[in-house]
C-alpha cells in the first residue's frame, strides 16, 4: 500500500479525530457507565462514531487500506494514552477497521451502499467482541458462567430461557442497524465536509 503525502496526512487526521473521540468521550463514558455496560452501551456508541469518522476518511483517501491505516493510527494513539493499555478497545478498533476495509472491497469505488455494508459489518464485531475477549482472557469456562447466569436469571424472573436468546438476537440486529446508519451518515457528512472545504 503506497499513499501520497497528502493521503498520509489525511489518514493521520482522521486517526487523530477517532483517537481524540476515544480519549475524551470514550474515557468519560467508561467512567459514567458501569463496567458491564462497556460493550453493550459505550462500545456501541464509540464504534458507531468510529465508523462515521473512518468512512468519511475513506471519501478523502479513496484507496484500499486507508480505513485500516486510520484504525491502526487510532489504536496506537489509544495504546499510548494516559489511561494505559486496555486490550478490549484496541482489539475492537483494529477489528472494526479491518471489517470496514473488507466491506469496502465489494465495491470498486466509494458508493453509498458499500459504506452502509461496511458500517454494518464493522459494528457486527461489537456483538461478538465481549464473547471473543472473554474467551481469550478467561478461557472457555467463562461461557459456563454466562450460561449459568442466564439460566438462573430466567428462573428468577420466571421467564423462558428462549426469551434470553431472543434478546441476544435483538442486540445483534441493533448493532447491524447502528452500523448501517453510521455508513449512511458518513456518506452524507463526507460530502458536506467536502462542500465546506471547497467554499
Amino acid at each position: 500500500m503506497k499513499f501520497s503525502v497528502r493521503e498520509l496526512v489525511y489518514i493521520a487526521i482522521f486517526g487523530a479525530i477517532w483517537g481524540a473521540l476515544e480519549l475524551t468521550l470514550g474515557s468519560y463514558m467508561h467512567v459514567i457507565f458501569p463496567p458491564l455496560g462497556d460493550t453493550f452501551v459505550v462500545g456501541l456508541i464509540m464504534a458507531s462514531l468510529g465508523v462515521v469518522v473512518a468512512l468519511i476518511g475513506r471519501l478523502f483517501v479513496p484507496r484500499k487500506g486507508s480505513v485500516l491505516m486510520i484504525g491502526i493510527v487510532t489504536a496506537i494513539l489509544k495504546m499510548v494514552s494516559i489511561g494505559g493499555v486496555k486490550l478490549g478497545p484496541l482489539v475492537a478498533i483494529l477489528a472494526e477497521s479491518l471489517l470496514m476495509e473488507v466491506g469496502l472491497l465489494v465495491a470498486r469505488k466509494p458508493m453509498r451502499w458499500s459504506f452502509i455494508f461496511a458500517g454494518a459489518l464493522a459494528i457486527t464485531w461489537n456483538f461478538f467482541h465481549k464473547f471473543i475477549m472473554m474467551w481469550l482472557l478467561f478461557g472457555k469456562e467463562v461461557y459456563e458462567v454466562y450460561m449459568g447466569m442466564v439460566q438462573q436469571g430466567a428462573s428468577m424472573l420466571r421467564v423462558d430461557v428462549s426469551y434470553a436468546a431472543a434478546i441476544i438476537v435483538l442486540l445483534l440486529f441493533i448493532r447491524i442497524a447502528a452500523g448501517a446508519l453510521g455508513g449512511w451518515a458518513a456518506w452524507d457528512l463526507g460530502r458536506v465536509v467536502r462542500g465546506r472545504l471547497a467554499r
Partner: peptide, 20 residues
C-alpha cells in the same frame, strides 16, 4: 508493508492536541 505509517502516526500524535 504499511509504508508511511510511521509518518502518519507522528502527524497524528502532533495533531491530537489541535484536534482536541
Amino acid at each position: 508493508r504499511l509504508k508511511g505509517l510511521g509518518f502518519a502516526v507522528g502527524v497524528a500524535t502532533n495533531m491530537l492536541p489541535t484536534v482536541q
